[in-house]
Amino acid sequence: MTRPSGLAIYAIAYLVFLYLPVLFLPLFSFNDGTIVAFPIKGWTLEWYRQLGGQDALIGALMNSVIVGLLAATLATSMGLFAARAYVRYRFRGKKASEGLVMLPLVIPGIIVASSMLVLFISIGIKPSLTAITLGHTFLALPFAVSILKSAFDDFDPSLEEAAYDLGSGVVETFRRVTLPIVAPGIVASLLVTFTVSFDEFVLAFFLSGSETTLPVYIWSQIRFPAKLPNTLALGSLLLLASVALLVVAEFFRRRSAKSTFGGSK
């Protein structure tokens, strides 16, 4: 090994500053005291134990899971057809529509959130879990499209033609050939879009009615110092779950890239 260069030191410092604050979350969740500050008083699992008994929190968690599942399913199914079209066909307005689909990635969340609130109220959808689900679908769509596009990129179009040639109709071809081959991409997309929805705060905050999602609930609890350690414990669990989901998603995405063989070996 050569001695670390200036760039390597910079990179390490960068990563430390980026992730150290995140690591404080699990650290303080085991702290036996309600004040988030060093030194740590002692170690406890009490905060994790208490989580089970909080009905409002469990309710918010279930809401998040339901919204996440729905948004992930909607975004992935729409993304599936969009991605296939973008990879397979040339059509008028393709670039423009791809740009539109990717737009939520760059528009500030607060603008999307406030304009969606206005839109939903004007078309008669009250702030509710339904509104949040629709908003999250919109936010998750670009993730679904880009993941599924990479799944279709390595997909030899003559596979579908071969199925058709062997007597399958359009639907049967999709079910017996297209779907199984892009399945790893679909799983990856479901996992990522679920995580996007599960972690989202701004839109959920604006579009919440009487029921709300977990991030919004946590935000509401942070004002009460006594509840803070509970929140830290919950946050740590969510962090763990998110990382686990993304790792699994990446595993499936790579498998989808490998499983189809194109021209090269």
Partner: peptide, 14 residues
């Protein structure tokens, strides 16, 4: 009543 052998062979990978 025709069947085709494709240039890429199009063997179903799954």
């Amino acid at each position: 009543p025709t069947n085709m052998v494709f240039q890429s062979y199009a063997i179903f990978p799954h």
